[in-house]
Amino acid sequence: MTRKQRRGVLIGLGVGILSIAAILMLFAFRQSIVFFHTPSDVAEHKIAPGVRFRLGGLVKDGSVERGTGTRVGFDVTDTFQSVPVTYEGILPDLFREGQGVVAEGVLGADGHFVADTVLAKHDETYMPPEVAKALQEKGVQLGKGATHPGGETGTQ
């Protein structure tokens, strides 16, 4: 083989493997991308039941209800809308009413969100960035000097 042919073989190998990887990636992306939505999105967009997505917001105060076994129900709210969520399993250590939470699962036909994963924030000053951002976009201020949206906008 000449030097050129050898280089051809190597380049062919590289391009071949890269294209296989690219096909795998496209295929995998279609199956495993999960979108993030807030309760308001759920109310507005009418997300189709059965589509997996992540629901983020605050656990509504007073909404946590322990069902039979390890089944738990609670509401996730962005202070404008809230979505009832059911979850089977042990909640994370930091799951608390009034705290940020991200639940992953599907929306049932009855508007109930059935979560199979629940993530709570990981320390006292940490809130999942997408939750913080989404809430801020909705005008909910977080952290020091935060004011309750009802107190400011007040007209709804």
């Binding site: 105060d61 007073g62 009413e97 009034g98 020091k144 000097g145 935060a146 004011t147 309750h148």
Partner: peptide, 13 residues
Amino acid sequence: EATLLAENGIVTE
């Protein structure tokens, strides 16, 4: 009072 102050004046549950 303590809770109210800790929550920056928001009346929580």
